[in-house]
């Protein structure tokens, strides 16, 4: 758990037992709103493109529950990783290492939101989706945060599954189960995650080294990381064709997958071949930024085709 004796984590005084100093904004920050926005978007696409009908109100409730579940995972991650967060520039200002919210409060808040979101989704939509949401929270908090993150450079490869589940949960909210088409939506994000995160890790490897997190650039070096990024980028682009084989998406999606995939590959090739320090950092930054645009484009294209098919 969080080691409050190291790093810059402020030991909490007696007042912490009476009241946390955190404001509402700090609790919102615990939910990792930026990560949540991607979860909301991909889950919404999963709900909408799934075969079958769900009342628009229940669609909203399903996406809300998935978003809150993702937020709960974020809060539990911040509770457990407070010691690491305190040692990294990117995360030192999070509410727990800053001392705005005690680790215990973050834990209680995260557990309450996790339990609440699973119950909410189960009661209001269906228990298959709720079970998947519970598994996703468990996977992110226990498998990724507690087990893999501090032990293996493959942490985000396996842990990335947690971020890939939301469209499957959305799909299950409508169909009540999992099938090959929903797995194809999962695979795109699962294979995309390593290239996305390792691009960031190339930029922040000093931070990860200081925190003792065995990210690939820290353990295997930048050259191996660049090679692996290219391999995963190729696999992601190949996987982006899978939805077409299951009847998801048509020409618009295919064109988007080809064009955006080509740019994504191009930026990954740049990361692979540019080794000059300054230019290499810029290339990694470009890949990190474009990887977000790429994933958004793929899912937005699926959404656009769904909307076109519905109203035209």
């Amino acid at each position: 758990m969080s080691d409050l004796s190291t790093g810059t984590v402020k030991p909490l005084g007696p007042e912490a037992a009476v009241a946390s100093t955190g404001g509402v904004g700090d609790y919102v920050a615990l939910l990792k709103p930026r990560v949540m926005s991607l979860v909301v978007f991909t889950a919404a696409v999963g709900v909408l493109v799934a075969p079958g009908h769900l009342h628009p109100w229940l669609v909203t409730m399903a996406v809300l529950a998935i978003a809150v579940g993702a937020g709960a995972s974020g809060a539990l991650n911040m509770w457990y990783d407070a010691d690491i967060d305190a040692r990294m520039k990117r995360t030192a200002n999070r509410p727990v290492p800053r001392g705005a919210i005690s680790a215990g409060d973050a834990l209680g808040f995260g557990l309450m939101m996790a339990g609440g979101s699973v119950f909410f989704l189960g009661v209001l939509v269906n228990w298959a989706a709720a079970g998947l949401l519970a598994f996703t929270i468990f996977f992110y908090v226990v498998i990724y945060t507690m087990w893999l993150k501090r032990r293996t450079p493959q942490n985000i490869v396996i842990g990335g599954a947690a971020g890939a589940f939301p469209p499957m949960i959305g799909w299950a909210a409508v169909t009540g189960g999992i099938d090959a088409a929903s797995i194809s939506l999962f695979l795109i994000i699962f294979l995309w995650t390593p290239a996305h995160f390792w691009a960031l890790a190339l930029l922040r490897s000093d931070d990860y080294r200081r925190a003792g997190v065995p990210m690939l650039p820290v353990v295997a070096g930048p050259a191996e990381t660049r090679r692996q990024i290219l391999i995963y980028a190729v696999m992601t682009v190949l996987a982006s064709g899978l939805p077409l084989t299951f009847g998801l998406g048509g020409l618009t999606y295919a064109a988007t997958a080809v064009v955006a995939g080509a740019i994504f590959l191009w930026t990954a090739v740049d990361v692979f071949r540019i080794v000059d320090q300054g230019r290499a950092r810029k290339a990694a930054g470009r890949l990190f930024g474009f990887s977000i645009v790429y994933l958004f484009c793929l899912y937005a294209a699926l959404l656009a085709e769904w909307a076109i098919g519905r109203w035209v």
Partner: peptide, 30 residues
């Protein structure tokens, strides 16, 4: 600290109220 506690209490109250409304509307829809 008192002001922040008050703001947190209001936020919790609003969240609970919102939950009641959400459950009610969902029950009606189903």
């Amino acid at each position: 600290q008192e002001a922040q506690r008050r703001r947190r209490s209001i936020a919790i109250g609003l969240a609970l109220g919102a939950l009641v409304v959400l459950f009610f509307i969902t029950t009606m829809v189903r």
